[in-house]
Design a protein around this nucleic acid. Structure first.
Lengths: 269, 269
DNA sequence: CGTGCCGTTGAACTTGGTCAAACGGTGTGG
DNA sequence: CCACACCGTTTGACCAAGTTCAACGGCACG
């Protein structure tokens, strides 16, 4: 039987489900599992609307394709995330989606998910909660792309991905699996691969993180958090998360300023 | 009695409501109207969650405040838009919101809106549809901030605002009310006011639009659309909208490339 | 052992930011 | 009525972050 550990792990923080609800969701995805290699399109712009996908393993993304070959990733999906819930009213996709790593997901017809959500109101609430967190992440991306420097944008995304991995039960301490390449990172942050590379080198040499062979370890989370002006509250982490224990005491009121000890590093604006 | 013309006008395109539903919504906002001068905060980061606001007249926005005084607008609200629907699960706001122009809105407790949505499923569906369009707008903002030049970003926002004004029944042809200043425009597009000014001048001198005293007239919508690589489909306009009649025949598959006649203009990337 | 992708590095270039000052309309008080 | 302050817009000069182009190295894979 297929299990939904990343999804349950994520929900346990704020919207825990009972045994019945878990069983209902698990039953929903029975015999609906699909697999896809890395870097394959799930759908492209103009395609008919597709069923909902619950990510079981691997990463995926939504992106906007440009005529000149460039692209912009607009949303990332980690295990436990739900794709396409917000597209029930359009007939055709206005964007594309692809796998980042090898992917395993459940393809659930909208009608079936709706039926389960009606039968178990807690599931309906959990879906709404998940959508509201996704919207909060969108707002943070806009903030990041609009006003942060390249260094801060990359740092912010690493912070976000660490916390999201941890929520899904996929991080060990401050280490997590990072299936994106530097090109993907640039497509998500609106940066060239060259700039991504230079920035990652900077973060590495500043002792903030290590990244080798798909494994990222955040070596100095408090400092990375400060540099990125990252405030994890929008992700609504479980209050007992070990990551929150070690967080730097930035006031919640206003986006944190970088500390004086970061002034010497270039590109930190 | 207060009417909700902008909201109904918006919904009429894709999710029209019957007389009963309209009356129910109208009754909901009775005696709940509020007024606010321009540039006043509705709430700030850290505030307790507030009831839902249905914009009746004027513009508002959500924004992220930085410690150094800069800010990033992450969402714009026009008449007929609904604020705060996606915040029902958090206790504290993770961002701020303020009026742009003088504002008139209805302050509706979430419980009452939910009750009406349960009683009239069409209203519930309409709310979901509205949220899905808001999410699509978010994705377009990310695309815009991530990969478009300053000229394209500004042009894209003008296109979006024209279409959204038209949907709300607030545009006459290609003319609409624009209560944002150039500083606000920069805060929404992640640009400095200086750059906004130069860009607006460029668009003006290219004969693409006129903007005087809060009134914007798009003089050459097809060309502005092409320059901005704007595809209106994500806004889910009513199929009979006059704006769609005049649209340039960009293929829906791939974001349009700027035409050759725009190559001579600077900053069009 | 070639081939291709990804990461890395250097150099020239361009966009947009920063700083500073002037301009123009509007409201206010003398 | 005029002087003044204030606010948003406009303009110029300079600067810096990030892009583009190009080449090279390493590693995986066929």
């Amino acid at each position: 039987m297929i299990v939904l550990n990343p999804l349950f792990s994520k929900l346990d923080g704020k919207m825990p489900l009972g045994q019945e609800e878990r069983a209902a969701l698990a039953g929903l995805i029975q015999s609906k599992a699909r697999r896809l290699p890395a870097r394959q399109d799930l759908y492209v712009e103009g395609d008919a609307i597709s069923p909902i996908r619950i990510i079981l393993d691997g990463w995926a993304c939504r992106y906007e394709q440009f005529a000149d070959g460039r692209r912009q990733i607009v949303e990332l999906f980690l295990p436990g995330d739900i794709m396409g819930q917000d597209c029930q009213f359009v007939e055709r996709q206005d964007h594309s989606a692809c796998s980042i790593s090898a992917l395993s997901y459940a393809l659930v017809p909208r009608s079936e998910l709706d039926a389960v959500a009606r039968q178990f109101p807690a599931i309906g609430q959990a879906l709404l909660w998940d959508a509201s967190v996704a919207a909060a992440i969108h707002r943070q991306w806009i903030r990041s792309l609009g006003r942060l420097s390249a260094t801060q944008r990359i740092a912010h995304l690493f912070c976000e991905l660490l916390y999201r991995s941890a929520r899904a039960g996929l991080a060990r301490g401050t280490t997590f699996d990072m299936p994106m390449g530097q090109r993907d990172l640039g497509d998500a942050r609106g940066l060239s691969t060259v700039q991504v590379n230079r920035t990652v080198q900077l973060l590495r040499s500043a002792g903030l993180l290590e990244w080798r062979r798909r494994i990222v370890e955040i070596s100095d989370l408090p400092r990375l958090t400060r540099i990125a002006m990252f405030r994890p509250n929008y992700l609504e982490l479980a209050p007992d998360s070990e990551l929150l224990m070690s967080r730097s005491d930035t006031g919640p009121e206003i986006a944190a300023r970088t500390g004086p000890e970061d002034r010497d590093l270039p590109l930190f604006r």
